[in-house]
Amino acid sequence: MIKRKKVRLIIGLLFLCVVIYFGSLHLKIRENIDSKAPNNVDYLIILGARVKGTIPSLALQYRIDKAAEYLTNNPNTIAIASGGQGEGEDITEAEAIKIGLMEQNITSTRIILEDKSTDTVENIYYSKKVIPNSSKTGILVTNDFHIYRAKQIARDQGLLVHGLPAKTPVVALFKSYSREYLAITKYYLYKYII
């Protein structure tokens, strides 16, 4: 009987720890959702997301739209379209971003392609290599749930950037947040333990 109570107590404490941990992750994500990006930065990096053939996924389209809005209002800012070509993609994510920006009247001369990356760490790593030397200030454009981790990864690589959150498709909210909790956990494990 005492043994059973002990087991229940341990399970209860573990469950409580898990709830507190994921709750704290959710707070960190939420703190970055309302971040305001300054005007007239030198560059913005649009992080890639899935492309279906040649059509941007809804998540990527929201990133493109948010970037185009900023670029229209800040004509001296250049864009770095970041993302390689994955399975089921007929063009690179970077190319899909460029096409989407040009459809919204952003000239191709303002768009630099980074088309090697396969994940967020590589998005930042390869984008950093194509940022013009004279550039000082920057912004990351990604869906709101992703801003926190993307900014942390950028900081790890020496880029102090602001976040410009695009909305997350409602149909993908649960999946996006669930995956992001796990991705942040993996990031923490690699950064602090492994």
Rank of each mutant, 00 (worst) to 15 (best):
A59C: 13
L60A: 09
L60S: 06
L60K: 11
L60T: 07
Y62H: 10
R63L: 06
R63G: 10
I64F: 00
I64D: 01
I64S: 06
D65R: 01
D65Q: 05
D65N: 15
D65P: 04
K66L: 06
K66M: 13
K66N: 02
A68E: 04
A68V: 01
A68I: 08
E69R: 04
E69L: 05
E69C: 02
Y70T: 05
Y70N: 05
Y70W: 07
T72M: 07
T72F: 00
T72Y: 06
N73L: 12
N73S: 08
N74I: 07
N74Y: 10
P75W: 02
P75Q: 09
P75D: 05
N76R: 14
N76A: 05
T77W: 06
I78T: 07
I78W: 13
I78D: 04
I78R: 03
A79G: 05
A81C: 00
A81G: 01
G83Q: 03
G83M: 13
G83N: 08
G83R: 11
G84I: 13
Q85S: 09
Q85H: 15
Q85P: 14
Q85I: 15
Q85V: 11
Q85D: 07
G86V: 10
G86F: 15
E87V: 13
E87D: 14
G88K: 07
G88S: 15
G88F: 08
G88I: 06
G88V: 10
G88H: 01
G88E: 05
E89K: 04
E89H: 11
D90M: 13
D90F: 14
D90T: 06
D90S: 15
I91V: 14
I91N: 00
I91K: 00
T92C: 15
A94Q: 02
A94V: 00
A94F: 12
A96G: 12
A96Q: 04
A96M: 06
A96I: 11
I97N: 04
I97M: 11
